[in-house]
Amino acid sequence: MAGLSISSYSFDHVILLLDTADFENPPEWLSKNFTIIEGGTHAGGSSRNKLIVFPDGTYIELINWISEPKEFFDWANKPPGLIDFALTTPTSVHDTFDEVTARLEADGGSGDGGLGVKYKLPLAGGRKRKDGQHVQWHVTKPVLASDSDAAPNLPVPLDKFFPTGRLDTPFFCHDVTERALRVPYAEKHISETHPCGARGIVSVEVVVPEEKIDSYIRLYGSVLGVEANVHGGYRYSPTTSVSFLLSTPNADEPAMKALRGRVGVEVRAPRDQDDEAWVRERGVGIREVRIFAEAKGEDEVDEAPLDSEGVGASLVLVKEPAGFWQDGPR
């Protein structure tokens, strides 16, 4: 993997909003693929969660509203499905804020690609687990401008590209209490018993308007502190895409360790009518999450969404034989 620029930042978790019926009785595409544990109730009392924890130290958060989500107002208008994702870093919450802010403000403030993105000072958050233990963290969320003066490259009209509000930039999550209290990835009966064999998050895809991809490349480079890896087809519709490579929270997880140089965020333009419909209905932002699993007793790669339609179609399981990519794809 010599020559690849890999950020020290990593995925923390992906947020999947469920309606009450699916939260209380998860559909088969969730229950038959994953071990799901109880999370608890968030501070403020308007939401609750369940977790799908992976041995790479990441997780999928299943979230549901108990009442009007005042403390999560930026997610309040989103329909069920993928709504956001969080990153974490090996540095402190305040050091990370300073680092990201400096990059966004570089070159006269153009580090955000003209999209009007800055980050708020870190805010305290938490929840009470079902066992009574209190989990605490800090979140650092983006401030997103919505006027042309502050964001000259913002895709407009807003009601076309952000019909439920802007969620085109990830936030950061840093633990105050021990990470293992929030993300029990070392407990094998939780993280290593997924029926589908999942080991961790390979990537998330963020879909943006093709004519604004240069602005988003600049923005994500500043947020992640790493240069983009250009894919074949960049600037040639309909395959315009770049990726930003990340680390993993648990760098010792064997299966994910072998994927170093492939884990990351892909920023791409819409490829088909389904993508166009996604942006029209949900807005610019996270479109898909890809989850890695080792293929046992097989010698070929298999990729398939967890469901044929709806929410489950945006989660893709990638099964590969052990060592398939060790010396490059065969």
Score class of each variant (00 low, 15 high):
52 I>S: 01
62 L>E: 09
53 V>E: 11
48 R>C: 13
57 G>V: 07
43 A>C: 03
60 I>D: 08
48 R>M: 09
45 G>M: 10
70 K>I: 12
58 T>V: 07
65 W>Y: 15
48 R>V: 10
59 Y>K: 03
68 E>L: 07
58 T>R: 09
57 G>N: 12
48 R>S: 15
56 D>S: 09
50 K>G: 07
72 F>D: 00
61 E>W: 05
65 W>N: 11
50 K>V: 08
55 P>H: 10
68 E>A: 06
60 I>L: 15
55 P>F: 09
55 P>A: 00
65 W>E: 11
75 W>G: 00
44 G>E: 11
75 W>M: 00
66 I>K: 09
63 I>E: 08
54 F>K: 05
72 F>V: 00
49 N>R: 05
60 I>K: 04
47 S>Q: 00
45 G>N: 07
74 D>H: 02
57 G>D: 10
59 Y>S: 10
60 I>S: 06
45 G>Y: 10
65 W>L: 12
70 K>A: 09
64 N>P: 03
67 S>M: 01
64 N>M: 15
55 P>M: 02
47 S>M: 03
52 I>K: 02
56 D>C: 01
58 T>F: 05
42 H>D: 13
48 R>I: 14
49 N>I: 05
65 W>R: 10
53 V>N: 04
44 G>P: 04
42 H>T: 05
55 P>L: 07
70 K>T: 10
71 E>T: 08
60 I>P: 05
74 D>P: 00
73 F>T: 03
49 N>E: 08
57 G>P: 02
74 D>L: 01
53 V>K: 10
46 S>Y: 14
64 N>Q: 15
47 S>D: 04
49 N>D: 13
67 S>P: 03
73 F>G: 01
68 E>S: 11
66 I>R: 09
58 T>E: 15
65 W>K: 06
45 G>W: 13
62 L>C: 11
51 L>A: 02
60 I>W: 03
64 N>K: 09
48 R>Q: 14
43 A>W: 13
46 S>H: 12
68 E>V: 03
68 E>D: 12
69 P>V: 04
42 H>K: 03
64 N>T: 14
43 A>L: 11
57 G>T: 01
66 I>C: 08
43 A>I: 13
46 S>G: 01
62 L>S: 02
62 L>A: 11
59 Y>F: 15
42 H>E: 06
71 E>P: 02
66 I>P: 01
62 L>R: 02
59 Y>E: 05
58 T>Y: 08
72 F>L: 00
52 I>A: 07
61 E>G: 07
67 S>L: 05
42 H>M: 04
58 T>M: 03
71 E>H: 10
54 F>S: 08
58 T>C: 15
50 K>F: 15
45 G>R: 12
56 D>F: 12
70 K>L: 05
42 H>A: 08
51 L>E: 06
49 N>L: 10
60 I>R: 04
53 V>W: 04
47 S>R: 01
54 F>N: 12
53 V>C: 07
73 F>K: 09
54 F>V: 12
51 L>P: 05
66 I>H: 01
